Simulated scan of single mutants.
Amino acid sequence: MTSGNSITRRGLGLAAAGLGLAAALPRDAAAQAAFPTRNFRVVIPTGQGGGAERLARSFDDGWSKQLGGRRFEYEFFPGASGQVGYELYVNRRDKDGYHLLFGNMGPEMLMYALQRPRFRFPEDITYFCRIDVDDSCVFVRANSPFRRIEDVVAEAKKRPLNVATSRIPHPASIGILALGESQNARFNLVPYAGGNPTVVAVLNGEADIGVLPIALVIRQGERMRTLGVFNNENIVAAKSNDAPPINQVFGTRIPPLPSSRSWAVHTEVMERFPDRFKTLEESAAKVFDDPAFREAYDKQGLPVETIRYGNRAACTEYAQGMLELANRYRAQLTAQR
């Protein structure tokens, strides 16, 4: 007679067989089944409190709901136009799908092309979820003597104007240099290491004008006036003084120069942990259907019109386009450094 909790010889054999089967399973496959089991760590290659952080935080609550309540913990590594953060992410963070990067593809692909950092794109980094398309613009403080973009160009033909920008390798920087080249006007770029310091430089008169993605300028409200956008349409005209497309004013053919922020992951994750990568891709895409995301975005003072989901293919196309622009305007950008 046996007790109710006794272990028979047959039971021992089944248990041993089960252990053997578990041991035979690849560790990566076993780990993927439960993904995610812990919080995510995110590298942002700009300073804390900037536009990238605001965008990421407006997104991560909705994404957390899609990922079983796992949260996002941020690290900030400004420096060298994003190079410091990217190199640290690629070389010092585990390639396991739990470590992500949130970057501004436009300026950071320009950085990649111009500064030749110690990582490779797309071999080391894959962008997979674009959040926004944020057009570059020219702006001034509300009491500036420049009322129109034509006023700026007219003055820049007489003397060099100091232009505040968040960093030299930036789509907005390309825009103002291309405008100057086309109109025989002189602009001197002054990098301020971030959007917020750029805004302050224009507000206090350190710089004659500024160039930035338009969402941050709109966020300043009546303190700023937008004079023109580097695209063929101003999708937020009602919120930006009906600022015209610069090509429309001058008959130029400057290419569209938006910033686009995106989540990225080590490319190796796609190969080692395809199920994890699929979970990240699919769950991120679902956030755009969550009204709470748009509400969080709006509460940050950002125009919801700039929300534009882009999948991995769209991100790669945009990034490659920025690399082409960097090569086209390499001489102008490097001359300003």
Rank of each mutant, 00 (worst) to 15 (best):
L25F: 04
L25S: 02
P26L: 02
P26Y: 01
D28S: 07
D28W: 01
A29E: 03
A30R: 10
A30Y: 03
A30S: 12
A31H: 00
Q32E: 15
A33V: 14
A34D: 03
A34C: 06
A34T: 13
F35Q: 04
F35W: 11
P36Q: 06
T37G: 11
F40E: 01
F40L: 11
R41Q: 15
V42A: 14
V43L: 12
I44D: 11
P45D: 03
T46N: 12
T46R: 13
T46E: 12
G47M: 10
G47Q: 12
G49Q: 08
G49R: 12
G50V: 05
A52F: 06
E53T: 10
R54E: 13
R54K: 15
A56M: 12
A56C: 11
R57C: 04
S58D: 03
F59Y: 11
D60C: 09
D60N: 10
D61A: 15
D61K: 14
D61I: 10
G62F: 06
W63C: 05
W63G: 04
K65S: 01
Q66T: 04
Q66D: 07
Q66P: 14
L67F: 12
G68P: 02
G68R: 08
G69Y: 13
R70A: 10
R70P: 00
R70T: 01
R70L: 02
